[in-house]
Amino acid sequence: MQDGNAIKSRKRSMLATFLILIVIPLTIACGILLLNDRKYYLISLLIIFYSMLPFGMVFEKRRPQARELIVIAVLCAIAVAGRAAFFWIPQFKPVVAIVIIAGVTFGAESGFLVGAMSGFVSNFFFGQGPWTPWQMFCFGIIGFIAGLIFHKNRLPKKRLILCLFGGLSTFFIYGGIINFGALLMWSSHPTREALIATYLSGVPFDLGHAVATVIFLAILANPMIEKLERIKKKYGLVESR
């Protein structure tokens, strides 16, 4: 039985990795190159569809219970509400912190799903555009990585370690990807000089975003993880990888 579960887990992991690291970036690239960045709603919905496939495999041959989906929905709602609540402070948003907490508690696939959904839904308040798929991928990949390295105690869920991961991932992963995406969105002929200028101009924003993530993780990580772990045990919620 354990061998069968291990095989299913490996298959789900391989599918998730393939979709997140290959299929989704290719989909975003096709949206830029083939659709001229005009079909961002379609690309966004495809990203959500891709992220739901490995998450759905967690439930194997049974239907998910409502309480198992409600927790994911609530985490998305908290991320969206938090982003809207701090709209008046540029880059000072709790979304990455909530996405990391989701990945740490429920696994990599859930972390990516919460990140992608939060980016898509919150942009109905902040404005949809060709940047939406990039933001969805950035939020999602951080949640995915958080699940890989923290879930099931692969690394200790200590406040300092979580804050360090959150700050570095926000600055280098989110900032690194979104700045590259911004260059492709606004320049039809990107150059190395333009890329360097884009990264340099983005440093203050990325740094502010990273500091915000550290602050929110320092405040929210321990109490939220503790409560989510308690809910997970009490109701026997199914976990992803």
Rank of each mutant, 00 (worst) to 15 (best):
F92H: 07
P94C: 08
V95H: 04
V95C: 10
A97Q: 06
A97S: 15
I98F: 12
V99C: 07
V99W: 03
V99F: 01
I100H: 00
I100E: 00
I101E: 02
A102R: 05
T105Q: 04
F106N: 04
G107Y: 00
A108N: 01
A108Y: 01
S110Q: 08
S110N: 11
G111Y: 00
F112H: 02
F112Q: 01
L113K: 04
L113C: 13
V114I: 12
V114R: 04
V114L: 08
G115F: 03
G115I: 02
A116D: 07
M117S: 14
M117L: 15
S122H: 05
S122Y: 04
N123T: 11
N123C: 11
F124E: 10
F125S: 15
F125M: 14
F126D: 06
F126I: 04
G127Q: 09
G127D: 10
G127E: 08
G127C: 11
Q128Y: 06
W131K: 10
W131P: 05
T132G: 08
P133C: 08
P133K: 05
W134A: 14
W134N: 07
Q135S: 08
F137T: 01
C138M: 10
I141F: 02
I142R: 01
F144I: 06
F144N: 02
F144T: 03
A146G: 04
A146Q: 00
G147T: 02
F150D: 00
K152Q: 13
R154W: 01
R154T: 09
R154K: 12
L155T: 09
P156G: 08
K157S: 13
K158W: 01
R159V: 15
L160G: 09
L160K: 14
I161V: 12
I161H: 10
C163T: 11
C163S: 11
C163Q: 13
F165H: 07
G166M: 04
G166H: 01
G167A: 07
L168R: 03
L168N: 05
L168M: 12
T170R: 07
F171D: 09
F172Y: 02
Y174E: 09
Y174G: 02
G176A: 12
I177Q: 05
I178S: 15
I178F: 11
I178L: 13
N179W: 04
F180T: 14
A182F: 11
A182W: 12
L183M: 15
L183F: 12
M185C: 09
W186M: 07
S187Q: 12
S187E: 14
S187C: 10
S188N: 14
S188V: 09
P190L: 11
R192H: 06
R192Y: 12
A194C: 09
L195D: 04
L195G: 05
I196T: 13
A197G: 03
A197C: 00
